[in-house]
Design a protein around this nucleic acid. Structure first.
Lengths: 219, 219
DNA sequence: CAGCTCATGTGAGATGCTCTTACATGAAAT
DNA sequence: ATTTCATGTAAGAGCATCTCACATGAGCTG
């Protein structure tokens, strides 16, 4: 918890915190991880970093503004991780696509606090332009990958890449929401969410004509 | 708003409400529709039906218990509507399956308050056995439909019906969450959510080998 | 260094929600 | 008529959001 103060000491450095905005964001992540986005309170975050309950209002208009900022950062991290997984379609588009799907689910599981803030906190995604843009950039990675895959089909058999990316997004988000997290109570599954997503993608890509053999994922 | 009292009169019938439990549930639906599941308060619901803020505690242990009850009823209505859409696979499994998908999205849109309570209110689905059972029954409709479809494939090409039903559920839920409602801010789409889901299902079923022609949906 | 400015933090408090407790009411049972 | 008890009320403790007047001290200016 070195972010609770900007200095190395354990006690307060002075009247001013010095790094309150960052500290509050990290406190929010900790608290959301512990008690969910609904259980997170502004007052708790203030206590957690050792300031009065009025101090956070110097940095965020209200409780929702802090949540929005956390969500925005979540989308930025999400974008970075998806982008790295896609890796410009290397070593080949199919493998990269599978990595992309795994990265989606990995984010939902490993960055559960961010994921909660992004999708389960009840904030309106179009209320803040920065948030909307960050979400758009995350989606753009899926779109780019879908375009690369679609380009491998002859033009007369080629589906709209936007539609494909929406399908992939919805499927990934659905699996993440229902199975990789708490939406339906961590329902008992016959397979891991990653396997479930991969299987769905194989069927889907075969339906597009991008894969011929039922058991092959490579191109 | 005839449910606010059990009688036809506008004023209170007496000291006792007479129908408070039902009235509170309906008030919750109205308030959730207006301000979202997070904005709904117990005190608001009590005011809405004209009782003191302590009265609801005679019928629900706490605020969450009311939300759970609303969600449970939502799942029961959901099950009924999905079941009617599936209609035992008539007139044919493919048409019935398409109807099922449309019913899923129609519910998310038309019963937005129920949908919010069910999926966006932050309640734990496994905290209440009645809620979990109701959710299971809704999923059972999807599972039944998937089994019927899978049975049309020869055994050696037949995928696990459970897996197929999970795919269908995740895809439907993903589209409903992201596009038919507010999750990503009612993102501008090149097509209606129903068309998006139908297109995805056609590709998916083709990938399973259940459909051969790219533009045919009937069997 | 002295003094000014202003971003940042504090304390007190208004308002509202959740939930509890002691008491009131009246419909149904006897 | 009387009793019973489910259902309602009033009052209040505890906590959260958010505001406002005021305190602090970091950084600038000379």
């Amino acid at each position: 918890m070195s972010w609770s103060r900007h200095g190395p000491g354990s006690g307060r450095r002075g009247y001013h915190h010095g790094n309150l905005r960052e500290a509050l964001i990290n406190a929010a992540l900790d608290l959301i991880a512990k008690k969910g986005p609904a259980g997170f309170t502004f007052a708790d975050a203030a206590r957690w970093v050792g300031v009065s309950s009025a101090a956070p209002y110097r940095h965020f208009r209200d409780r929702e503004a802090l949540l929005v900022d956390v969500a925005r950062r979540g989308f930025e991290l999400f974008t970075a991780q998806l982008d790295r997984a896609w890796n410009d379609g290397r070593p080949d588009p199919f493998t990269a696509f599978e990595n992309l799907g795994r990265a989606y689910l990995a984010f939902a599981r490993e960055q559960a606090a961010y994921y909660s803030a992004m999708f389960e906190s009840g904030i309106a995604h179009d209320s803040d332009s920065g948030l909307r843009d960050a979400a758009d950039r995350a989606f753009a990675v899926l779109r780019k990958a879908s375009e690369t895959l679609c380009a491998r089909l002859p033009a007369e058999k080629r589906p709209p890449a936007l539609m494909v990316s929406l399908h992939v997004w919805a499927l990934s988000h659905g699996i993440a929401s229902i199975f990789a997290r708490g939406d339906a109570g961590r329902r008992k599954l016959p397979m891991a969410p990653e396997e479930l997503l991969e299987a769905a993608m194989l069927v889907y890509l075969r339906g597009l004509g991008l894969i011929s053999s039922p058991s092959s994922s490579g191109g």
